[in-house]
Amino acid sequence: MSARLGRAALWTAGVLVAAWLVAPTLVVIPLGFTDKVSLTFPPTGWSTRWYANFFGDPAWTAALANSLLVGVLVAVVATAIGTAAAFGLTRWTNGRGSAAASVLLLAPMIVPGIILAIGIYAVFLKLGLAGTLVGFVAAHTVLAMPFVVVSVTASLRTFDVRLETAAASLGAGRWATFRQVTLPLIMPGVVSGALFAFVTSFDEVVVSLFIQSPTLVTLPVQMYSSVTRETDPTLAAAATMILVLTTVLVGGGLTLAARRNRAR
């Protein structure tokens, strides 16, 4: 009897916590479709005017375009560099060296964002990179790379290296082996790494707040400054779109990761 009671209490607590993790964020979806100017929840009438507002306002559309551009570039750069690094880490036989390198590669994940932001801001100001596309891509690449390294390393760990030996015996050189054997087999890890890299860049706020310029603002930065100025439901429309996009991408990444594990 008491065991059943305990179980019920446990499930109640779990479901409440789960609801608290998921539900609050979802309020932005109906709010984006409100017909009022205020952010009262629940909305009393519906319209798509805030989406029209979003796409009619060059500040928002430019921010969206910038975020997409930076995100794609970061995904490409971080995936290329991060995949190479993951390869190096798993193949480097010098245990101490590769342990040290992997600590450094994952370090951006534990250093408080504000410290990194101040440092990057100072360096970028000196180099004239603040507010530039190159600057954004470089800064976000550093933050996104650990995710690529982790994701690709995981798929390299389950990759049977002996297949590369077999390929060599069949006449394939290093590059041919990589292209035809290794890469196709670790592709799920690479793709999910790329998706996580994109999402990391697409969501990044703190560093972007520092290195933004009037000519280059990303979507989270635009949201941040709108929130601090006025709060109209355009924000909710923007938030909904970010939510949908990142959910789709992360969902895709997780599915790929799951498929990779099942393939074993």
Binding site: I81, G82, A84, A85, F87, G88, L89, T90, R91, W92, T93, N94, G97, S98, A101, L104, L105, A107, P108, V111, L116, I120, V123, A138, A139, T141, V142, M145, V149
Partner: peptide, 17 residues
């Protein structure tokens, strides 16, 4: 294999460390 880590390390040194 170490050479493959070099680009990542350079980016980290320049934009992080």
């Amino acid at each position: 294999p170490f050479l493959l880590i070099v680009p990542a390390l350079l980016v980290l040194l320049a934009v992080f460390a």
